[in-house]
Design a protein around this nucleic acid. Sequence first.
DNA 1: GTCTATAAGAGGATAGAC
DNA 2: GTCTATCCTCTTATAGAC
Lengths: 197, 197
Amino acid sequence: MNTTNDKIRYTAFKLFLERGYEATNIRDICSRVDIKAASMYFYYKSKQELFFSIYDDIWSEELECMRNIPELAEKTAPDTKLYHLFKNTIEYNIRDMIKFKFLLRYHLFPPEEIAVVIVEKYKYWTNQENELIQVIIKQCMDNKLLYDNRSLKEYLREYRKFVNLHVTDMILSNIRLSGSELDHLWNKFWNCTMLNG
Amino acid sequence: MNTTNDKIRYTAFKLFLERGYEATNIRDICSRVDIKAASMYFYYKSKQELFFSIYDDIWSEELECMRNIPELAEKTAPDTKLYHLFKNTIEYNIRDMIKFKFLLRYHLFPPEEIAVVIVEKYKYWTNQENELIQVIIKQCMDNKLLYDNRSLKEYLREYRKFVNLHVTDMILSNIRLSGSELDHLWNKFWNCTMLNG
DNA sequence: GTCTATAAGAGGATAGAC
DNA sequence: GTCTATCCTCTTATAGAC
């Protein structure tokens, strides 16, 4: 948060989130950073390059966080692992809700000018994330903790839907769920949806 | 869909939905309608006026539809009424998913220029909708179909969250739920969330 | 690295003719 | 009702000095 580049990235992130890509202009970003618009072009060759540099960083940070959940490395039951993955994901998104909101904005409503690249990058990053989740779900199925009358893909979709919707709801309602509320939701989800879909 | 005004409204709706308010310009709307930009100003005094005319219409139409659900006028049990309200609301949004998506876009990410008015209008319209829902929930509580250890407001929030999230999920995943899937979801919701919160 | 100056274009909106 | 012509402002991006 010290270098000019850091300031540009931080300011651009906030404006891209609040105003959107089209309504954010280089002059506004730069005036807040206290440089002239032309100076931005020393760091990034275009507005698009600046945007995607920020976009990729958000995904990469979130994945890094998911890969470093200590409980996933331990020798715990796979259903417990999935619970920890869920809880850590939600808590990460509560801490950094604006990052999720940023991604939500551009996945739901990609600006025409950058839509093709966004879709491409979205596929890449969700695939990375899915691999992580699928390993655990597969372990659950192998250990008969999840029935195999449903496919891995279906379970994956249920899990992703569950996580996404609760984060989306926190954004829409501006309510942050507590640890015990999360546990309650998880139990309801596991029993009502995963076991008795 | 015959008059010039209809064409302007329909085209503007599509562009406001897909490109967003800031990225949609009068010239683009008018070139598709096959008139010159200046002609738009005969119908609307500004871009904002055009936008809010469309915005209000979407809400008003949805409320009209909810108020005309035949089962709500009949002398059926209030929990059955709530089920019909849910099913009709979802089915209406499946038919006109882009209208829900339009509202979602501007409620989640209101353009700065029109944010204040959007928030004001959003409050007005959701209040209208809430009154309709609350009447039925109150009947459920009066008839002991819902326990009164939770407040009317809490039940209302659970109901709204349930409906909103499933419509949002349909938009995000591009999957439309069938009638039997809706029934299944409703039973799970009623038993797991409303009765055993 | 950061600046000034400027090119080259797109945007909302209005005046006034027909 | 619809047009042409135009105003004025804002935008991304580049050239070239320091």
